[in-house]
Nucleic acid binder design. Structure first.
Lengths: 106, 106
DNA sequence: TTCCATATTGGCAATATCGCCATATTTGAA
DNA sequence: TTCAAATATGGCGATATTGCCAATATGGAA
């Protein structure tokens, strides 16, 4: 493991870790379509407001979402334009995995 | 959270979780370039052979890598062709995050 | 068979994540 | 200022992840 790239893998892992939760993936989907405040997200996700707030801060820490304040409300949104590629790759993996389990390479 | 898509987010989260580790990301990089056996990977990664074996089984469980046996050796390789998109998106996020921290949207 | 190299699996302690409750904090309205 | 709504943060038990050291397959060679 090279000295210089170890940090890079850790940085990448942070991003992957931020996405490694069903609720956070749902949030990313929602916030890609439109800006939303915490309470609305909380209802959509079906988790406690404090839980959602923490999830959002995790996403924000790695730069996947941004936020702005308007009065007492915090509006969050996705700041990166390449998530679709992410998700479609995931779908590809899921599909090919289903096929692969029936075929040669296990 | 819609009934039907919850499982889908969990399936995606599994994949993200599988990638959410520096060593596993390094392994994916290595195994994308060439097929490798456990011991060689272990040396490259700098972790115990049993640790690497477990990492590999995590990657294999979600269908990111496949393996074949040749004698006593197990050769692993990446089975999905869309990882580059994954990684380049991660780099994009990392870069834009650095810029974003100096600018408006926090 | 016995021996050796490779790989996988158990077990376990250390650490991290998760989600709720309770408690700040912030902002606008009264 | 006092109150209420929206968010953020502390804290804590429950659960999951991590990585090493055994211990256990597994296969080839002697």
């Amino acid at each position: 493991m090279k000295e210089k790239t170890r940090e890079q893998y850790e940085a990448r892992a942070k991003i992957a870790k931020a996405m490694a939760h069903p609720s956070r993936l749902l949030m990313l989907d929602l916030l890609q379509k439109q800006e939303m405040c915490v309470n609305d997200i909380s209802e959509k996700v079906g988790a406690d407001q404090s839980t959602v707030s923490k999830h959002l801060s995790i996403l924000k820490d790695v730069g996947l979402v941004g936020s702005r304040k308007e009065g007492t409300l915090s509006y969050y949104r996705v700041t990166c334009g390449c998530l679709d590629g992410f998700f479609s790759c995931m779908e590809t993996v899921l599909l090919s995995d289903l096929e692969g389990r029936r075929l040669s390479v296990k």
